Simulated assay, not measured.
Amino acid sequence: MSDTGPEMVEPEALAAEHALGVLTAPERAAAELRMASDASFAQAVDAWRVRLGPLASEVADVAPSDKVWPRIERALPVNDNNPQLARRLAFWRGATVGAMGLAAASLMVAVYLGSRPPVVIPAPATAAPPMLNASLNTEGGQALFVASYDPQRQALIITSLVPPGTDPLHVHQLWLIPPEDGVPRSLGMVEPGTAKTMPLDASLSQMAHEGSQLAVSVEPMGGSPEPGPSGPVAAIGALGEI
Rank of each mutant, 00 (worst) to 15 (best):
E226M: 12
S2M: 07
Y149P: 05
A13Q: 06
A13D: 08
Q142L: 12
S37R: 12
V97Q: 13
Q206C: 05
I158K: 01
W92L: 11
G223W: 11
G211W: 03
Q206W: 05
G211V: 06
I157V: 15
I236K: 13
A90S: 13
R88M: 11
S2Y: 06
V190W: 06
L204A: 12
R51Q: 12
P229D: 12
D61C: 02
N133Y: 06
P130E: 12
S135D: 15
A110D: 10
P64A: 11
S37G: 09
S186W: 02
A104C: 01
F91R: 08
L174H: 03
V190K: 03
N133H: 11
W48Y: 08
L156V: 12
T138H: 07
P168F: 03
P54L: 10
S135Y: 07
Q43N: 09
V9L: 01
N137P: 01
L161H: 11
A99W: 11
G53H: 10
A60P: 00
V9M: 00
V9N: 00
V59C: 03
L214K: 04
A195Q: 10
R88Q: 12
R49L: 07
E7L: 05
A39G: 02
A105G: 12
L52D: 07
M1P: 01
S203G: 09
L85H: 12
Q206R: 14
A16Y: 07
L161C: 04
E73A: 15
Q43L: 12
F41N: 00
A44I: 03
V218I: 14
P77M: 04
N133W: 03
A95V: 08
L169H: 13
V171T: 11
F41A: 00
A105R: 05
P227C: 10
I158T: 09
A125T: 07
L107H: 00
E210S: 15
A42H: 00
A208T: 11
T138V: 11
N79T: 09
P192R: 06
V119E: 15
A86I: 08
L85M: 13
P129W: 01
P163G: 07
V62A: 08
L176D: 02
R116P: 01
S57M: 02
L14S: 02
G140D: 13
E10F: 09
A25N: 01
M189G: 08
V190P: 05
A42Y: 00
P83F: 14
M207S: 14
A110M: 06
R87T: 13
L169P: 01
L23V: 06
A36V: 04
S203L: 14
V109Y: 02
P184Q: 08
P117Y: 09
G182I: 09
D38W: 05
A110P: 00
P179E: 14
D61A: 14
T96C: 06
S212D: 10
P130S: 10
N82F: 12
L176T: 05
S148I: 02
A202T: 11
L132I: 08
G98Y: 00
V119D: 14
S135Q: 14
G140K: 10
L23Y: 03
A47K: 01
P232C: 04
L204E: 06
R153L: 15
V171G: 02
D66R: 13
A127W: 01
S224W: 05
L176A: 05
R87C: 09
P220E: 14
P163E: 14
A215V: 06
E210T: 15
E10W: 07
K67S: 15
V22Q: 05
P232M: 12
L52C: 09
D38E: 09
S65D: 14
